[in-house]
Amino acid sequence: MSTPEIRDTRAAYRDALIEEHASYVRAGRTAAAEHVARVLLAEYDHDVTPAAPAAEPEPEPVKETAAAEPAPERAVEAPPVKKTAAARKTTARRPAGN
């Protein structure tokens, strides 16, 4: 009879914190990301900050055009809007004999 495999909860918790830090960075929540980074460094001796700032690749040049693209043509034109006259206001008639 073999013994069941015991899960390394410390490693699982560390991995969860690493993923949490990455999600905070993607969401732009720098304060929360910094807090989780400090916990990872203090408790697990794991540094999530990049070792050296990587050189950013140069952006590709944007192809410029002389004119903006025309709006797409419609296959069916919109139906014309009907103009209706506003209802006339009438005053209530008094019954005869008053």
Rank of each mutant, 00 (worst) to 15 (best):
13 Y>S: 09
13 Y>L: 13
14 R>T: 05
14 R>A: 07
14 R>W: 02
14 R>Y: 08
15 D>V: 01
15 D>C: 03
17 L>P: 00
17 L>E: 00
18 I>T: 02
20 E>S: 15
21 H>S: 12
21 H>K: 10
22 A>T: 13
22 A>P: 00
22 A>K: 14
24 Y>H: 15
24 Y>P: 00
25 V>H: 00
25 V>Q: 12
25 V>N: 09
28 G>R: 03
28 G>S: 00
29 R>D: 13
30 T>R: 14
32 A>S: 11
33 A>G: 03
33 A>H: 01
34 E>N: 15
35 H>S: 11
36 V>Y: 00
37 A>F: 00
37 A>E: 07
38 R>D: 15
39 V>F: 01
39 V>K: 09
39 V>A: 08
40 L>P: 00
40 L>M: 05
41 L>Q: 14
41 L>S: 06
41 L>M: 12
42 A>E: 14
43 E>P: 05
43 E>F: 06
44 Y>I: 02
45 D>T: 07
45 D>P: 00
46 H>P: 00
47 D>A: 04
48 V>N: 04
48 V>Q: 02
49 T>H: 13
50 P>K: 06
51 A>T: 09
53 P>Y: 03
54 A>F: 01
54 A>R: 11
54 A>G: 05
54 A>M: 11
55 A>M: 10
56 E>T: 09
57 P>I: 03
57 P>T: 07
61 P>D: 03
64 E>F: 07
64 E>P: 02
65 T>K: 13
66 A>C: 07
66 A>H: 07
66 A>V: 09
67 A>E: 12
67 A>N: 10
67 A>G: 03
67 A>W: 07
70 P>C: 03
71 A>Q: 08
71 A>M: 10
73 E>V: 13
73 E>M: 05
74 R>H: 05
74 R>L: 15
75 A>Q: 14
75 A>G: 04
76 V>K: 14
79 P>M: 03
79 P>F: 02
80 P>V: 07
81 V>T: 10
82 K>Q: 14
82 K>G: 06
84 T>E: 11
84 T>D: 06
84 T>W: 13
84 T>A: 08
85 A>D: 15
86 A>K: 15
88 R>C: 01
88 R>F: 05
89 K>R: 13
89 K>S: 11
91 T>L: 11
94 R>C: 08
94 R>S: 08
95 P>N: 14
96 A>V: 04
96 A>F: 01
97 G>H: 01
98 N>H: 13
